[in-house]
Every structure is written in C-alpha cells, then in structure tokens.
Amino acid sequence: MEWVLSFVAVVVAIILHEIAHGYAALALGDDTAKRMGRLSLNPLVHVDRVGTIIVPGLFLIAQALARTGGGVFFGWAKPVPIDIRRLPNPRRSMALVALAGPLMNYALAFLALLLLHATPLLPWEPRLWAIGFLAFFLMANLALGTFNLLPIPPLDGGRIAVGVLPERLAIAWAGMERAGIAVVLLVVFLLPAALAEFGIGFDPLRWWLHGIADPIFRFLAALAGHPRDLVIVLRFLDGDGGG
C-alpha cells in the first residue's frame, strides 16, 4: 500500500508543478494554457502516459521491490502550451515561468509540513496513513522541485539559466534543449548505476539533492514549527529508509 501512496503523491506533485507553469504564463500575459483547458485540476488533461504514469510507476515499484524507504522520483506531465510571443521580455519571462514549477513544489512541501500538525486529531490507524502520505508527498515535492532546478535544458533550471545568462551564452545553453533529457538520463541515472558495478561512487543527483533539498527542508520544517521532530523524514530523504 505504501507504493500506492507514493505513486499518488508523485503524480499530484507533477501535475501541480505543471499547472504552476500555466498560471505563471497567464500572469505574464499568455493565456494559451487557459484557453486550451490546461489550468484545470482535472489530472486527465495533464497526464502523459509515459512521463506521468509509466516512468514514476517503474521507479516506485523498483523501490518497493528493493524495500527502500526513499529514492529517486522522476517523471513529467504534458508540458503546458506557452506562446512565447505573448510574453514581455520572452527570455526573462520564460525563466519566471520555469521557476514557478519548483516554487509550487516547495509550497506543497510546506503545506505537507503544516498538515502534519493536524494528524494527532485523527484516530490511530487513519493517523498512520495520513502521516505516511504526507511524508511521501513532502519527499516527492522536495525531490521533484530540486531535480527540476538542475541547470540543464529542458529542465526548469536550464530555462532559468537561459533567462539570466548573457545573451551569447544563453543561446548556446538553449541549444542543449534537444539533447538535454538524454544528458540527464545518461549522467544522472545510467552512468552512476554503471560505475557502481565497479565500486565507483558517482551520484551527482544525490549530491545535488543534498546540496539544495536538505537546507530547504530544514528551513521549511523550522518555518512550519518542526525544528527537531522530523529527523526520520530527513533520513528518508537521505535514502536509508529510516532504519
């Protein structure tokens, strides 16, 4: 049942991440996503069969079979349509639109931390399920938001980089967009797994997540009034399953 909670948490995090892009574009003057019905909370309009269902499902099933309490969450929804011609200062505006996705995930992580305060009001068994789901939801949003900040196009971090770099460098960086996902899959997922077979520790994603997600988690936990009692969740983020 835990992997079902994990799967639901990941899918919700992915879909709301994408909706945030659409609302950011709308605020900046592009109503394309709104006109095409992509600002809806109906998950069906955002689901990408591969990115939202199959890929996250495979990651979570693999973690369930390996009996790990935490791990990598990877997936995507159908990108919201954005007409860059409707945006003022397109390069800067696209950076803001890109930033909206990770910010949504961090806001959802903070919401999960706040809702943990309410779990003692529930009967014992529902309380356990609620805590479990909120922990998964917290981890999924921290991981998804931070992963997307990797400065590689077409990830959000790559588009933010394109928006803030000098124009010449930005054009060159944007040219990575077509190969970006292949680079991510190779360097972040496949290469570490291959090197691990030879006893070589190379895990740039874990280094990135710890460098960014850990301090954000500590800040949000303190802001939500959990300065000390969420060590177990932090250990899940560290990948040791809390054991």
Rank of each mutant, 00 (worst) to 15 (best):
E2Y: 06
W3A: 15
S6A: 15
F7S: 04
V8Q: 01
A9N: 03
A9W: 01
V10M: 06
A13Y: 02
I14M: 08
I14K: 05
I14W: 09
I15K: 08
I19V: 12
H21F: 09
G22D: 08
A24E: 14
A25R: 09
A27R: 15
G29K: 14
A33P: 02
K34T: 01
K34Q: 07
R35G: 02
R35E: 11
R35K: 06
R38Y: 00
L39C: 00
L39K: 02
L41Y: 11
L44K: 03
V47D: 15
D48V: 07
V50L: 15
V50I: 11
I53G: 08
V55K: 13
V55Q: 14
L58F: 13
F59G: 11
L60V: 07
L60Y: 09
A62H: 11
A62I: 09
Q63E: 13
Q63C: 12
A64E: 15
A66L: 14
R67N: 15
G69E: 05
G71N: 07
V72D: 01
V72S: 02
G75N: 05
W76C: 04
W76A: 10
K78G: 14
V80H: 03
V80L: 06
I82K: 04
I82Q: 03
L87T: 01
P90F: 10
P90A: 14
P90T: 05
S93K: 00
M94C: 04
A95Y: 00
V97N: 02
L99C: 05
G101H: 10
P102L: 03
P102S: 02
M104A: 10
L108W: 05
A109C: 06
L111I: 13
L111E: 03
A112H: 13
L114T: 03
L114F: 06
L115I: 10
H117T: 06
P123E: 15
W124P: 06
W124Y: 14
L128P: 05
A130P: 00
I131D: 10
G132L: 10
G132E: 03
F133T: 12
L134I: 07
L134S: 11
A135D: 13
F136V: 09
F137Q: 04
L138Y: 08
M139G: 14
M139Y: 07
N141S: 00
L142W: 13
F147R: 01
N148I: 07
L149N: 13
L149F: 08
L149D: 08
P151A: 04
P153M: 04
L155S: 08
G157T: 05
G158D: 03
R159P: 01
I160P: 01
V162N: 00
V164E: 02
P166G: 08
A170H: 01
A170E: 03
G175D: 14
M176D: 01
R178D: 00
G180W: 02
V183M: 10
V183H: 00
P192T: 08
P192N: 09
A193V: 13
A196D: 11
E197W: 11
E197L: 12
G199P: 04
I200P: 01
L205Q: 08
R206I: 02
I212E: 10
I212G: 11
D214Q: 12
D214A: 15
P215F: 05
I216P: 11
R218G: 12
L223F: 09
A224G: 04
G225D: 05
V231A: 14
V233T: 07
V233L: 10
L234T: 07
R235D: 15
R235A: 11
R235N: 13
R235C: 07
F236E: 10
D238I: 06
D238C: 07
G239W: 13
G241C: 03
G241I: 04
G242Y: 06
